[in-house]
Amino acid sequence: MLKNLQGILGGKVEHALVRLWSDELSEPEAAAIHNRLRGDPAYREEFRGSVAVLARMEELAEDGETLKILGGHRRLLQERRTKRRVALSLAFAVVLAIGAALTIFAPSRGSDESNLQRYSTRIGEQQTIGLDDGSILILNTAGQLVVDYSEQDRRILLERGEAYFDVAEDPERSFTVDLGVRAVTAIGTAFNIRKLPEGWQLAVIEGEVALHSQTEELSPSPLPVPADGEAVVVSVLTQHRVDQGWVVEFDAIRNELRAFRPESMDRYQQWRSGMLSFYREPLYRVVQELNRYSDKKILIEDTSAMELKVYTAVSVHDIDSALRGLELALPIKVTRHFDRIVISGATGD
């Protein structure tokens, strides 16, 4: 408060204006503003000029940029309020139920004992994991994660692969996914994380998450707004709040975080339906994806075939059919060996 008063007494008009807009304006602050306005004509002139320009700026309320910020933030705030109310009542019910269970079945159990559970999937397999708190995790092909729930917090270590997290709110326990040097903490949300050979990719499907280092206290800032379809490189050292519709990729080699807003989030979550669709994707990308679900390595032998554009939808549970479909649609030949599958250009035939 003393700083506010100092700002009003010795600073420019913005200090007074910002306090005047506050619902917490104190008596001494009001008196200080009064005195400055009455006793300092130049100050009064500045004040008047500033508020007049603000009135004229009302027209900017309809600006696209303004609406974008307003729309997103207001909606999210409302959603969070609703979720918080729901979560608080749910949390109470859950605590009561668990409390009763502990009393009956395990009265001597330590209060801070954590419960470590490891889950893994084979190639081509998906596993849905329902956790005690109501959160749901879906682990994609060749994945591995550890669930570490305690009374204080909920931690997940994604060791490899890809997983979708639909997090149940619990105001008492944060939900954090450990990604090595960084961590993702859910703020009432659903998101997808994929570990890559040299980094990871985070896609926020619903709500928002905080991206931070392990030991930091949470105070994330929103990501900068990029031009449509463009990516922004953001600092790896600071905390970021990643909102719904954003994708953040970490490149460990460059030590770089790239954030962007894709036109659609489908490609980050379609795997859960067991179908993958590709629209104008180069063949090498499609093969890269299929390889994740195939127990035989798929290789492209001809560089000329790599860039062929693919429009298709395939089932991750039937890679063989997917390859047959590609063979019909593209000028390629698929040869199956006992240990690998090779794609070559069909022109040589």
């Binding site: 008009v13 200090h15 000029g49």
Partner: peptide, 9 residues
């Protein structure tokens, strides 16, 4: 807010 208003002023 103070910083934003300063820029505007």
């Amino acid at each position: 807010m103070v910083q934003a208003m300063r820029r505007i002023r």
